[in-house]
Amino acid sequence: MRHPGHWIGAVVLFICAAVFLEILVTNQNLQWPVVASYLFSPDILEGLGRTILLTLLSMVIGLAVGVVLAIMRLSANRLFRVVSWGWIWFFRGVPPLVQMIFWYNFALLMPEVSIGIPFGGPKLAAWDTNTLISPFSAAILGLAFTESAYAAEMLRAGIQAVSGGQTEAAATLGMTQLQTLRRIVLPQALRIVIPPIGNDTISMLKFTSLVSVLALPDLLYSAQMIYARTYQTIPLLVVATLWYLVLTTVLTVLEHAVERSFSVGETSRRAHTPWWQRLFRRPFARQREQAA
């Protein structure tokens, strides 16, 4: 045998896997019948829906703010650059959990939110902060702003990856700066950032479980509420785990589909990777491939 190490390793792994399977099947504490009975219960499904909504809303808002931040960051205007830099610095530095709790308690800092002339000028409209900030909006703010900082940095790299030659070519065709950005630069930048955005979406899905601190009944907190009542802790955590795995798998497949539809015509340059292999892809591996 040329690789005895491989064989020993394989045997050890096989034994571990067998033990793990045995636990899954025979350990009574897992209570599979209980898992099955809660898997599609209305409370769990409602929590699942809220988790999906939180993920999507935070990503959409985060990306939209991120595009603006990235453009500001690359702008010729120094004030724009500084503001964008500061925003990214702040929201990348503060953990989303801290942000959520902070936003939720925003009323303690600012009892009233108003639109009007600042520094004591007249107000056009004012709202009580406590009516604006619900657990849900506090969660969205915390998650979306964190994402905006990451998205801005990715998009900036994406925009910079589009060659200056193309921008000049567009200029000689008489395109304005906005037209060039919208038609030439952003479509390519977005394509470059699809893989990292896909990864971010999956991370976001997992980050949403933080909202349980705001007592917002997402997937995890719904499960927690049930086992607080019934003491069936493990089976309900298994229910949540299964759903998280389903969601991340679906997101991975979706990401693959989006990426493929965006890369029509470039397929000749790219090796085709099946989605099941991409489940385990290292983040940013694709970008390194492209750079090479």
Partner: peptide, 29 residues
Amino acid sequence: ARQRRRMGMVFQGFHLFPHKTVLENVIEA
């Protein structure tokens, strides 16, 4: 931009838009 339309320019490095087909490159502007 209004003046640049009146002068075409061809570069050493082509600078086509890689996300568009040949036809789309031509009809874009």
